[in-house]
Design a binder for these strands. Structure first.
Lengths: 338, 338
DNA sequence: CGAGCATGCACAATCGGTTGTGCATGGCAT
DNA sequence: ATGCCATGCACAACCGATTGTGCATGCTCG
């Protein structure tokens, strides 16, 4: 460490002075274009070892400004409060890193205003692409990106103004429902009602899951009463309250429930415990995955969305941007615990 | 939208042309320094409305370059796989946003190499401050930051080269242990052994929690056998295996367990279910918080670390950087479910 | 021996804001 | 009429990297 003690960071100009050469040469060496620029190997290695020993680190802002490429890729996410979104963030990050991109992730609490604000910030930082995960209003953001000439993609929930990668919710729900019905059949309780609870009515994924639920029942010759479908929002408290209300009208607990998320499951389980019900009697299917929950309940089947494949698809779309904004890629989730 | 259809983003130069004024004036108006620069109100509002209608968004890279301040604040995190780290990320982000800073969070999988690499990237993006959460090697990163003249802080796990904000692990563990022992006493099983399981032996937090565990037992006149302390690492599989091994030597399950994290709890619960044990008989204390797990088990007490206060303390340290790198701030966690 | 080419590097413009400084204009007091 | 100050804005340097271009040197070949 020979550098002067001034607190300023080292620049290519400093390195040029130290190596007795020009800044442009230093730049070429440090960003790997030196062979193309016919810098001698000797000078190159001198500069490289100098950069090493002095702890040089390129100023990404300056680079981004000049290159007109930030090297940043953005994602907006509702929350980190479940395994699904957490692992989306994590895989997004590591896949970005693998490609030499820097990932920035912003939580927007399922709030359209925060979504917009986050998107605006990301565009200000000149992200090269923006992935909107589970956005309540994906099209507004897609519009903003389009106006800035930035590619955008939807993940988890589809939009109409940018290509989307989502789970095959209908098929996942169909399979989960069949798994539930099979369990019921094994126990000779095929005709018991199954309660579908959680999620948002207007939400694309919830609609699809309800459709898959009904379809599976139809396939084994069962009709589905509308009173057994309760899209009461995702929040734990909402689910708990909805179940209370449901139970007011009848004496006996449903033998099985299709719960639309782990956060809803939390409310359900809490409510049942509070009322002294024995949980293990109930067959649960949850469209979400949480290994700790799975460990606790012996008859809890869960849908694990294929996050790795979804993220892979996202990056494929980033590599070769499709022209059709309506493109919808559906990834098959796995059923755990059957 | 009068702007030309060229895909290039609008700059202050474009706005200056449109408003028939100079770039410096546009800049002053847009960053709020126009009064100080005696720009007329009339011209200012003209420029502002133009910027609005044309959808101007400042290039943060250019701003950061000139101002020599990125407006970015970084955090490195082991994982997002539990509620604790997730909420740390979330609160960090919203608190940063409240202060006009842009938060970037990077997961490093408890891997010192990845930690370094992430820190290097963050420094390259000229973060104004770096918070190292649960870092396996916080001092190396603190060193890197110091060399770049960037402030750094440790969170969750302390370091010796930068101020640290952590939970009061010993006191939290002491209280949790007392809660466990009280439950045992209520059931007239005060003398039953309690198993401490999970965590890393070398890890500061684990050491403190073990100390708190022993101290609580001592306070009620109980000795602690070393064979009942199993810091087998955090991973679920490790905990599951450690419990198997422990059980090989004895016939009966411990009446109560102090589990060092939800991830360890996952392995324990899975192992017990596999072996057909009835979970509800066991009193669990877990040094971690997960509302879904809490809903499932009626006798699971959990330590909820006070993330909000911890993040507040972190930002206080950012606002007024202390000179002493050994400063250690301990925040009291809450015991849930007693 | 001179043309021609390869080699090895330096110069300078540029990316888009920020900010110290300077200049023209007009009003007011002397 | 002259000096002085406030007003309102423009100029230009600068942040640190990137990159098109140009120039000096040395070597080869006819």
């Amino acid at each position: 460490m020979v550098s002067d003690s001034s607190s300023k960071r080292l620049t290519i100009y400093d390195l040029a002075r130290l190596a007795e050469t020009s800044p442009s040469t230093v730049s070429a060496v440090l960003n790997g274009t030196w062979q193309r620029r016919r810098i001698s190997k000797k000078l190159a290695s001198k500069i490289l070892s100098l950069a090493q020993s002095e702890g040089y680190s390129a100023n990404m802002q300056a680079r981004a400004l000049r290159r007109e490429r930030s090297g940043i890729i953005g994602m907006i996410l509702p929350l980190y409060d479940n395994r699904y979104f957490s692992s989306i963030a994590q895989h997004f990050e590591s896949e970005a890193r693998r490609r030499g991109l820097f990932a920035i992730v912003s939580c927007t609490n399922r709030d359209p205003k925060q979504e917009c604000e986050a998107a605006r910030m990301m565009l200000a930082y000149r992200v090269e692409c923006l992935v909107c995960t589970g956005a309540t209003d994906p099209d507004t953001i897609a519009q903003m990106c389009a106006e800035s000439g930035v590619q955008s993609l939807n993940l988890d929930l589809p939009g109409s103004k940018a290509p989307s990668v989502i789970s095959n919710n209908r098929e996942g729900a169909r399979q989960l429902t069949h798994a539930i019905l099979n369990r019921l059949a094994e126990e000779k309780r095929s005709d018991d009602p199954v309660l579908f609870i959680g999620g948002r009515d207007g939400d694309h994924n919830t609609r699809e899951r309800i459709a898959g639920f009904k379809q599976a029942r139809e396939e084994v010759g069962l009709a589905t009463a509308e009173e057994n479908i309760l899209p009461c929002d995702y929040a734990a408290d909402k689910a708990q309250a909805a179940l209370e209300t449901y139970m007011c009208k009848r004496s006996t607990l449903p033998s099985a429930m299709f719960v639309n998320s782990t956060i809803s499951l939390e409310g359900i389980v809490r409510g049942l415990q509070l009322n002294g019900y024995y949980l293990d009697d109930i067959i649960f299917g949850c469209f979400d995955w949480d290994p700790l929950a799975a460990a606790f309940h012996p008859r809890l089947m869960m849908v694990r969305q294929n996050v790795i494949e979804m993220i892979d698809r996202v990056f494929e779309l980033i590599d070769t941007p499709p022209q059709d904004p309506h493109l919808l890629i559906e990834v098959q989730p796995d059923i755990m615990g059957v």
